[in-house]
Amino acid sequence: MKTSYHSVHQPRCGVCQKHCKSFESLREHLTGPLPRGICSKIFSQQGCQLCLALFDSPGSLIDHRKICRISAPTCPGTSALPYIDSQFDCQDFSDENHAGEGPGGAVAMDCEMVGGGSDGSLELCARVCLVDEDERLIFHTYVQPEIPVTNYRYDITGLTEEHLRNAMPLKEVREKLLQILHNGESIGKVRLDGGKARLLVGHDLAHDLDCLKMNYPDHMLRDTAKYRPLMKTNLVSHSLKYLTRTYLGYDIQSGTHDPYEDCISVMRLYKRIRSQLHPEEDHGTMTLSNNIVGMPDSWISRELDNLTPDELYAMSRSDYKCWCLDLIPRLSA
């Protein structure tokens, strides 16, 4: 079979330049049970265990580690944040610190759920938190679910009936969140190309949005649970706890879950991945050709033999949008 083309956005070994589908594959290549000998040896002396980057000298590696390993955020707890609305507006992203990050930049969201229904298994949003790229808390509130709460899941959420007694109704919470995300942009423009709307960063955003009964365009979502390079080799999601410990170097969710802590962590993950420097790629992203999807392996093999090099290259391109491309300003009308 002809040599396959690999995307410049895929994780790559700094020693042998091997392309990997995910950071987990690259980590196994460098430090796993059966690592490649020469790569493992060089990486153990000159590589960062968090971001997997390779450096020219031990001194450069030491300097890098001081920046790469981040301390855990300080959690304010459940009693310190009754309601916060910072009147976040489009001026927050007009300065030079956010140049090149798109008209609206990004915000991270996390929700805390309690249980409803006779057995407490229904997921009900009871707390919402948003932070911006500078880790400023821009919105926080407790949420009054639309049906009675039957399980506050106190050991995990730290929430009680008192927290939700005078909480904001779900409909009002949803309206405020969309106001922040849309950033004054029309719904049509947000759905088309984003305009000046804000990117929404989170972990398992589909679950949070479902519990909020809220829709936001897929192309405006940055989900650390669904981003291919951060997933397992079998395309199963890692937990946010694992990703934070592995790529940021600190632990979260050791006791009661705090949405503020999760927001900060998921934003740090997003910014770390987004900051990767990749060469420009002339080709767009494509997925496996529809004419061979679902065919038996023997048929696929014969079909591959009949494809031209360009067609093989097209099939081997990454099927995800690299977050480094978010640094390219979105076109404005």
Rank of each mutant, 00 (worst) to 15 (best):
A225K: 12
M113L: 15
C68L: 05
G202F: 07
H9S: 10
V293D: 06
R36T: 15
L331K: 14
P11W: 11
C90P: 01
K21A: 15
T150W: 07
D218F: 13
P296G: 11
A206N: 13
L159P: 10
L137I: 07
R12H: 10
T308I: 08
Q87M: 03
D319C: 03
S7L: 06
M1T: 06
V107P: 00
G14A: 10
K41M: 13
E281K: 11
C129I: 08
H207I: 09
K18L: 13
C324V: 12
L307T: 00
L81R: 05
K66T: 03
P296H: 11
C51Y: 07
L212T: 05
L26P: 02
A333H: 15
Y154Q: 15
H29T: 05
E123W: 14
L50M: 09
H207Y: 04
M1P: 11
G100L: 03
F43C: 04
Y152C: 03
S186F: 04
T233D: 15
Y313G: 11
A106C: 05
P103F: 08
T157R: 09
K2M: 04
T74H: 09
D119L: 12
H19W: 14
M109E: 06
Y320Q: 08
A72W: 01
I300P: 07
D251R: 01
R136D: 11
